[in-house]
Nucleic acid binder design. Structure first.
Length: 874
RNA sequence: GGAGGCAUAGCUCAGUUGGUUAGAGCGCUCGCUUCACAUGCGAGAGGUCGUAGGUUCGAGUCCUACUGUCUCUACCA
């Protein structure tokens, strides 16, 4: 088959993916003769399309999966999507708004119909995007958080937790989004420093001329005040404690209480207490038995408790009016600018109102303890390690998890209330009648569960839990969990305690965290900035492999990275390089009989590249194991481009186009051997191009994705030979350098003279030296004088290089250059000598390092002598 | 308030348990119609590794403080 001159991924990416799918290569079997290796996808939200963060996620995971699959594991990449309760619901509400409809207009049933329609559309789109990326996921196991399997797990878990007393319902302060009209968990609130004001209010003491001043950032909540608190140690207010105040505008009589919570240094040292609308005040209220008066409705408007003047007003409007009225009543002391942290809904960004509400909660303390333990005892390991500290920090201070949401899209809470006897029924299956009174008049809880409640079960709900399925037995616990560090709390932590609690096992052994993919200027990609990148567009322009390699190279675990078109372009160039190198090999191998490298006599250059390949195998394998994919990718980039293309392919041209059939056979054998193995090493990162080329290699059958990953072979390491051959390479580099330094065109052939003990090696590689350095003849001499012309000379390890360049040589310039060189070498001698003079170094450093340093010193001393001789001869 | 990250070439970043003369890509300079590739080839310039101490035979790497910067987290009304 003819290969195109340039790499054109569109010619084969889709075709190969279809072939892989058709041949069922992605399917992982519960095969007892193999070791399982499992990763579950961080399920993308069905709210929209994939972005570069997903692309990074999936590149990392797919690389690990393909690597393990090639190593003989039964590698399962389990794909799926998340229903993303609140996020999707927001989208659907928006969509309906365009039609002039609200949730209430269409009703629950129709709303859910629309949501499923949305799911089918976007879920399908996400799957297509993942396929474009080349992800080798087992689509036969495609999961969705609201499918039957996962929903069954949700009910199982809810009921079990309830029965263990770990789920309860109660009135607590929660975060309320007035726009989404639902409760939010603490994790779903984002704080930002907003400019606002501090309103100082004066509350008079009953039947007295005294008053107390309090400051607030939310004056409208004063309607719900049921006390004023001061610090018990505060001398200023000692006499006030126990007195009664008259709440302005309302006229309610409220006590002054003493509570440690109050910071004497802050504000006036007196705090108005609104138990219904502030988490701290709620706690104070509990301690002092204060009344809880809600003055706001769920939609953020004031309710009847706020009084007729404000009822029905939005709280922001009410705020203005209340401030006006307070001012008129003489209760407003002053207003000062103040910036403070305000919570916002993570989906719609409205200001979150803390309010008292009846919600379902998960009791966290008993769940957090074993989850912390699992990481402490290294049953789960974080990469990078530092994230375990962040995990501990959060887990140790965790509060109960509010799991009920006043939404429709999601898992409906499996709780029913009997209208006749008031019984609460919590059940895995829908009950027909009240077990207490037999009434059929049951009403299911209206609310759904936090979307993260089902995500928390993902590693086992997708594998069949609670049923004891073959998949569950074989693939669970999973091996690696890879995702961005931004969802440690939302997801990773919750999977850990859920896995331990419900399956008795940690859900995965390794957590591999990556950073955020930012834009070229280092900004987060976001809708509002319009700086998001669609992976599909990048793939369309450069191919999936280029994108994958760009995302993964130069990136360390846990570190943020920047996306730039230039980076992708550079990697596209690398793909083109691989493509053309392969084209070179295949063209030369065409029609020839390519032997195994063990059947041919290897040249020094051959042994060198094979040696380089072996160390590359070692480095890639090692770093894949440590999740250092960036390092592995970098090693491959260097090996492929520098070692294989720039050096070996050029070196191979001499035997390839020479007149010895034996040497040609050997070179061909090595070219094919090295290329084939390099492609295998590259395959986990760039699956398409490697598969396409692999199929064109002579004598190769089958797919690269199910071939064996290369194993380091010490018999092919050729350490000594490789090192020796580097001497030849140094000669070539030196000659090139010399020619450039006198503006001699590379194509102009020069005569080369060497004073070298490596005479045999040089002679054996004369053809390569002549070709790569642009040399016409090679001679051996003792010193520059033997050449008999004006020469440039350069002392390198084991060798002095002389190139007669006649008139081009400027003696004075040459003297300066040599003097500089001498200085450098002398510097090295001082450094090495200093080290060796140091008794501590000799005694404490490893012996091989000391020996190496001695050898180095000898080498530099020899070089110094030679350079001095050159200078003398000039 | 608490915690964590980052600071290395003009730019973007690697640098594995401390150990050769600190690397890459992009950019820059010079030279190349070399029969795989100009999405290329060769040569080169460019860094006292944020500052100050410390540990060590040895520090870009470990410790402490400081400066700058980013992020997470938290109940200061």
């Amino acid at each position: 088959m003819e290969m195109q001159k340039t790499y054109n991924p569109k010619d084969f990416e889709d075709k190969l993916y279809a072939e892989w799918t058709e041949k069922n290569y992605f399917r992982a079997e519960a095969d007892p003769s193999k070791i399982p290796f499992t990763i579950v996808i961080p399920p993308p939200n069905i709210t929209g399309q994939l972005h570069l963060g997903h692309a990074l996620d999936n590149t990392i995971i797919d690389a690990l999966i393909r690597f393990k699959r090639m190593q003989g594991y039964s590698a399962l990449y389990l794909p799926g999507c998340d229903h993303a309760s609140i996020a999707t619901e927001v989208k659907i509400v928006e969509q309906m708004k365009k039609e002039g409809l609200t949730k209430q207009d269409v009703g629950r049933e129709e709303f859910l119909r629309r949501a499923w329609e949305w799911k089918d559309k976007f879920g399908g789109r996400i799957v297509e995007q993942l396929k474009k990326m080349g992800v080798s996921a087992d689509w036969s196991r495609l999961a969705f958080t609201m499918d039957e399997r996962c929903s069954k797990a949700v009910r199982e878990v809810f009921v079990n937790l309830y029965e263990k007393g770990l789920i309860y319902r109660g009135d607590r302060i929660i975060n309320w989004c007035p726009s989404c009209k639902t409760a939010l968990s603490d994790a779903e609130v984002e704080y930002s420093e907003d400019a606002s004001f501090f309103w100082h209010l004066k509350y008079p003491v009953k039947d007295s001329s005294e008053s107390i001043i309090v400051a607030t950032t939310r004056p409208e909540t004063m309607l719900g005040d049921t006390a004023v608190a001061v610090n018990p140690k505060d001398k200023r207010y000692e006499h006030m404690v126990g007195k009664t105040l008259v709440l302005p505008l309302v006229g309610r009589e409220i006590p002054v209480v003493a509570d440690e919570y109050v910071d004497m240094e802050f504000g006036s040292g007196a705090v108005k207490i609104t138990p219904a609308h502030d988490p701290n005040d709620f706690e104070v209220g509990l301690r002092h038995g204060l009344e809880v008066i809600r003055v706001m409705n769920d939609d953020g408007t004031m309710n009847e408790n706020a009084g007729k003047a404000y009822e029905g007003m939005d709280h922001f409007a009410a705020r203005e009016k209340i401030v006006e009225d307070l001012k008129a009543a003489g209760a407003l002391v002053k207003i000062e600018p103040h910036s403070h942290n305000v919570g916002h809904c993570y989906r719609c960004h409205s200001t979150v109102e803390p309010i008292v509400s009846k919600q379902w909660f998960v009791k966290m303390a008993p769940l957090a303890k074993p989850a912390i333990d699992a990481v402490v005892r290294n049953k789960i390991h974080f990469t990078p390690e530092r994230f375990s500290k962040i995990y501990y920090n959060w887990m140790e201070g965790i509060k109960d998890w509010c799991i009920s949401r006043q939404l429709w899209w999601g898992h409906r809470i499996p709780v029913w209330y009997c209208a006749d006897c008031g019984e609460t029924i919590v059940s895995k299956t829908d009950p027909d009648a009240c077990p207490h009174c037999g009434s059929k008049n049951l009403r299911q809880d209206e609310d759904v569960l936090d979307t993260w409640f089902s995500s928390a079960l993902w590693p086992f709900s997708t594998l069949g839990y609670p049923d004891k399925t073959e998949d569950f037995d074989y693939f669970y616990p999973t091996d690696v969990l890879s995702c961005g560090y931004d969802i440690i709390f939302f997801w990773v932590a919750r999977m850990i305690f859920s896995g331990i609690e419900h399956t008795g096992k940690v859900p995965f052994r390794d957590v591999l965290l990556h950073g955020i993919v930012r834009d070229e200027q280092g900004r987060k990609m976001s809708k509002s900035l319009g700086n998001g990148i669609d992976p599909l567009e990048v793939i369309d322009e450069y191919g999936a492999d280029s994108l994958r390699f760009a995302l993964i190279s130069g990136v360390a675990p846990g570190n943020d990275s920047r996306y730039s078109r230039a980076k992708v372009e550079a990697m596209r160039n690398f793909m083109n390089k691989i493509w053309n190198a392969s084209r070179f090999v295949i063209m030369n191998a065409e029609g020839a009989d390519v032997p195994d490298i063990r059947e041919v006599k290897l040249s020094a250059a051959d042994k060198w590249i094979v040696s380089r390949l072996e160390s590359c195998i070692k480095e890639v394998t090692l770093n894949m194991g440590k999740f250092e994919l960036g390092i592995a990718a970098g090693a491959l980039y260097d090996f492929m481009w520098s070692d294989f293309c720039d050096w070996y392919i050029e070196l191979s041209k001499a035997p390839l186009y020479g007149d010895s059939p034996e040497k040609k056979r050997a070179a061909l054998a090595v070219l094919c051997f090295v290329l084939k193995n390099a492609l295998k090493l590259l395959h986990p990162f760039v699956p398409f191009i490697t598969e396409e080329i692999y199929g064109n290699l002579p004598g190769v059958t089958g797919s690269i994705m199910i071939s064996d990953f290369p194993r380091y072979d010490s018999k092919l390491a050729y350490k000594k030979e490789a090192k020796a051959f580097e001497g030849v390479m140094d000669i070539i580099k030196t000659v090139r350098n010399m020619k450039t330094s006198v503006n001699c065109p590379p194509s102009k052939k020069v005569k080369l003279f060497l004073a070298s003990p490596m005479k045999r090696l040089v002679s054996a590689n004369a053809a390569a030296i002549m070709k790569l350095a642009g040399v016409g003849s090679i001679g051996f001499v003792e010193s520059a004088a033997d050449v008999g012309e004006r020469v440039l000379s350069q002392v390198i390890e084991n060798c002095t290089v002389f190139v007669p360049l006649g008139e081009l040589v400027d003696i004075e310039k040459e003297k300066v250059r040599l003097a500089a060189e001498l200085e450098r070498v002398e510097g090295e001698i001082r450094r090495a000598d200093g080290k060796l003079q140091n008794r501590g170094f000799i005694e404490k450093a490893p012996k091989n390092l000391v020996d190496a340093e001695r050898a180095k010193l000898d080498k530099f001393i020899e070089m110094k002598e030679k350079i001095e001789r050159q200078l003398q001869e000039l």
